[in-house]
Amino acid sequence: MQTLDDIDRQILNLLQSDFPLAAQPYKVMAEGMGISEAEVLDRIGTMKSTGLIRRIGGIMDTRSLGYYSTLCAAMVPGSRIDAAVAAINRLPGVTHNYLRDHEYNLWFTLTVPSQQEAVGTLEELESTLGIEIVSMPAEKVFKIRVNFDMEIGNED
């Protein structure tokens, strides 16, 4: 893990919760922080190369775009994990796929244009892989937050 200073943390907080919607967003950030735009870009570049920043852009609302999404879980025998992961990860609508410590050991999310397409995709995976998949779409969303507060002055 990279060592961060308070300027990095301030940049991370701004990038997460107050990223300017502007033609030159890094210049706006730099002016607010009293440092140069080059320094902002340079620090962000470093935090991207270490992997701390995954990306900078927009997070779209799946439902507003008319998409259907669901959390899926499967019980996959150890010998078939590799094949299952390969087949599941190949799908563009799968954004997360994890091995988890439960009888249902493979958990993935599927986001597709319609519920019908989700059903079809899962049925096809089940028959190709010989596994059973359960689909657990959200009934109610209480929270989706992807901000991580970087506490200024916190030495870790």
Partner: peptide, 15 residues
Amino acid sequence: GVLRRWGAVLRHQQA
């Protein structure tokens, strides 16, 4: 509401 958030996504492990 089509754009839910604007800005950076971090990898929480690294954060």
